[in-house]
Amino acid sequence: MKKNRIYIGCLTAVMCIIIAYASYGMLNKGQEEKIYPISVIVDNSSSDRWFAFREGLKQASRDYHVQLNIVSTGELSNLEEEKLLIQRESENGAKGIIVQMCDGEGEEIFTQVQESAGAADILLVETDVQPEGIFPAVIPENYEMGRMIAVSIKEDEKELTGKKIGILMGHKERLSQKQRLKGFLDEMEDTGAEILWQITDNDIVQSKQLETAEILVALENDETERAVDLLTESGIQSCSLYGVGCSEKNVYYLDKKLIKVLIVPNEFHMGYQSVAIIAARLQDHMASTQNSVVSFLVVRPEVLYEEDIQKLLFPLVQ
């Protein structure tokens, strides 16, 4: 009799547990997915150059159900400013922060940035920091991009000896810029070309200075735009421009053949991938933190409208 009662008791308990589980399941179905707020901090956030990147971010935020928060920024030129932003976003509840570091070298950067990030996960985009790999990063092949500019120049120019080259760089502390420059210089070694000058985004450029160079190399989207603007404004036709960029303006200039070769990193991929990785990390903290490398295209005006290239280059929805 006693055994019987125990059986019945067990059965009842099991039933109750099942009922509780089922009702819990029914009630919680809608809230299964947790929506993580993710903040994005990039230099000059409203710039056109981020258009494809933002598209990627938005698409991924839909696919991975994260709440995207692109922080409005102007020029981000120093680490302190950036750390403040990171800290503020973290305090405002961001679980993940996708950040383009404007500067970063030395061991202490990890602890500093992590400190300001608090509990939030950090993911780097566009540029890594030195030493590489302390944060997960989604970055274009910066070194290769620089190298490919040089390769394109070599293709175009039969004789490079004595050619005068001017280089326009973005933020000079940024690792991506250094890597691109290094890639370019490494490839240009032994060609006999002369690097006439290097200027960064803070320097004021006169069109006269541009004229001194025969070949202009711009390592950053905004610099490429600036170079074209300066060239068209002053009507200089003598120098050919090789640049990195992805804004529509740059594509237009390429189409107009004002740019000879445009290196276009797949920024849509970069945006998508960064959210995908950080969402995976937020859902599972053990997820691998491998760096993700984003490819790029070498585009010349002749191939601009080729199917594969136009699919990547032009934003679909306007």
């Binding site: 009842t12 039933m15 109750c16 099942i18 009922i19 589980y21 089922a22 399941g25 029914m26 179905k29």
Partner: peptide, 13 residues
């Protein structure tokens, strides 16, 4: 499905 499970459990109870 949950509803079914619940129904079964309830009726069994």
């Amino acid at each position: 499905r949950f509803f079914m499970v619940m129904l079964v459990a309830l009726s069994l109870l």
